[in-house]
Design a protein around this nucleic acid. Structure first.
Lengths: 334, 334
DNA sequence: GCAATAAAGTAAAACGTTTTACTAATCCAA
DNA sequence: TTGGATTAGTAAAACGTTTTACTTTATTGC
């Protein structure tokens, strides 16, 4: 069964297509369509269940009311929770979200940008990776609103919303030191994105400020995309160094793997061994003992992202770029 | 900067729009375009970075290469993991996913269906809720491929892929009974969807088959969408009944809340109190002691969903409906 | 009672593709 | 040498909207 078109409505109501279009778009008054006609057409529309074809609409107007969301991996709870919040807020303002996961592949990220481009999304929300700078620059040159979140690309001149990774990391290490820890390990990833680098820098700076020498044997950089079993064996190797008395995990999935290791090698978290995980996760609260975490301000990040996007979408002129850095919260458990 | 259109390419190559279109769509051979022209046009396309406008394409052809995914909540790890798998498999076959969360609201689900309809998605993958039967029927009447997963709506005649909830629940209870448990509680939700009802039925049947009387004081039905604090206090009330020696949580988020309660009231899982959670979650593996779970076959569900969808998309005639029920696995931990 | 203005509405172009039906030139067989 | 088949390509309609520029009739002010 073919779906109804504006033409069918026009014929039924015995008016022109133009008139129907004006009514649908709330321009009836301003285009001086009579009350009687408005009512008649609206009645027919309601009865027939006609819905305008958004594709035709997009083709004509050039915008789609769709926002593209590019993230690393929707099955990571940090991203899925952010996605949910963004979706929610966007939806309330009449925007829909198309998302896709890059799995940290530059090629896939570029492909996604192209796909979104050819689908004429109105705006891009991206948690970027190194290597897509040129593509993003082209988007910006073409006048597309682009907002980065969680991660930033320093060479790109656009708005960014994220947590204060450097300070969060610094404070975590400081709290270890305040507890008297001396041999503090860091488990992080080798992906070269700003937020990960900042966490690393915060680690180093805190050690330095406290007069503790940086020891590269205490830092483990895990390949992204490797099998979890491999990750686990690397972490196991690290943590078997007896002297380590504290460890900061730079992402939640690394912390999960790390906790599995602790369970395996039966190393207890307590007075002489402390753990902090980056990005909260339900497992950390439930764990016995509770795992201290750096909690990212998801709600604020999502709210700011949407606010910036909508501001750009509603004003023709591009607003000033903003770098919104939101403090993260260190939650000490148990 | 305006983006390039097929016309720009045609002008540059000094051929007609038609010719360019044939080449883009791989019909050059069959439409007898000469090798020389093909090469020339392809070169120009590559150099200019031209990408066809998918919106115009969709308008003309009536399909979008987009599959709509409607789920309850993307931030629930069961759905986000399934979404990731589906996205991945769809992507490999040239399809993109638009997803949205219903939050178990019938109105939002209907709105989403309408939105997808007006965007002309090629197919619908839905984890349905009661109340949208009419809307789905209309989709089917219009010839749209629709596949349900995780949950089913009995009155609707379409394909379904899901786990064997009844047996999984039955086996869980049976395993409690085999351990000698007598007062087995069930914490479930009040949403009226088949998969939840089946879990409940499995619970009842297992008790009955073992000659244990059903006691409604041992069954707690939690409102969907209520605050977690409320959920926690209700579960607390239930579990404070001393005689309860085992509990099955019918969803992973209920189990998470339940574990928080156990931690609060300091009730230990062990020989005289057992827990099984439905749907695995990282927290369950890490928990001390490990929490036994019913693991849904995510990979198989996603694979079957995509297989069915693609079969429908490629064959003009609608294939037979299939009900694919995949056994779930009871993982006993510790 | 006449020009200017307002009210009520419409025809047709445009958005960027795909596809159908067509033309013109060349080839080949009888 | 002729006429059907093949090769190489194109013009134009169609998809379903929005929007600009236009028409026709009624109203107003003087």
């Amino acid at each position: 069964m073919k779906s109804l078109s504006i033409k069918d409505i026009a014929v039924k109501a015995n008016v022109s297509i133009t008139t129907v279009s004006f009514i649908i778009n709330g321009k009836a008054k301003e285009k001086s369509i009579s009350e009687a006609v408005i009512e008649k057409v609206e009645k027919i529309i309601a009865e027939s269940g006609y819905k305008p074809n958004q594709i035709a609409r997009s083709l004509r107007t050039g915008n789609s009311n769709i926002i593209g969301l590019i993230i690393e991996d929707i099955s990571n709870s940090f991203f899925s929770r952010i996605a949910r919040l963004i979706e929610d807020k966007a939806y309330k303002r009449g925007y829909k979200i198309i998302y896709s996961s890059t799995e940290n592949s530059v090629d896939k990220a570029k492909e996604l940008i192209n796909m979104f481009k050819s689908r004429k999304v109105d705006a891009y929300i991206i948690s970027p990776i190194k290597g897509i700078e040129e593509d993003v620059k082209m988007l910006l040159e073409d006048g597309n609103p682009v907002i980065f979140f969680d991660r930033n690309l320093p060479d790109i001149n656009t708005s960014y919303v994220g947590a204060d990774h450097f300070n969060a990391s610094y404070q975590s290490i400081q709290s270890f030191i305040d507890q008297g820890k001396k041999n503090i390990a860091l488990v992080t990833t080798d992906i070269n994105v700003e937020q990960i680098v900042e966490r690393y820098d915060g680690y180093k700076k805190a050690l330095e400020d406290n007069g503790i020498k940086y020891d590269e044997n205490l830092v483990l950089k895990i390949h992204f995309n490797q099998e979890e079993s491999e990750t686990i064996s690397q972490i196991k190797q690290l943590l078997e160094q007896k002297k380590i008395d504290a460890v900061l995990f730079a992402t939640n999935y690394l912390a999960i793997s790390g906790l599995k290791v602790l369970k395996q090698i039966n190393k207890k978290i307590g007075d002489d061994f402390a753990v902090i995980a980056y990005d909260d996760h339900e497992a950390f609260e439930l764990h016995t003992p509770g795992i201290s975490t750096v909690q990212q301000p998801l709600e604020e990040i999502a709210e700011n992202v949407i606010k910036l996007i909508l501001k750009q979408l509603s004003s023709k002129a591009k607003p000033e770029n903003q770098q919104i850095i939101i403090p993260a919260k260190l939650i000490i458990r148990d």
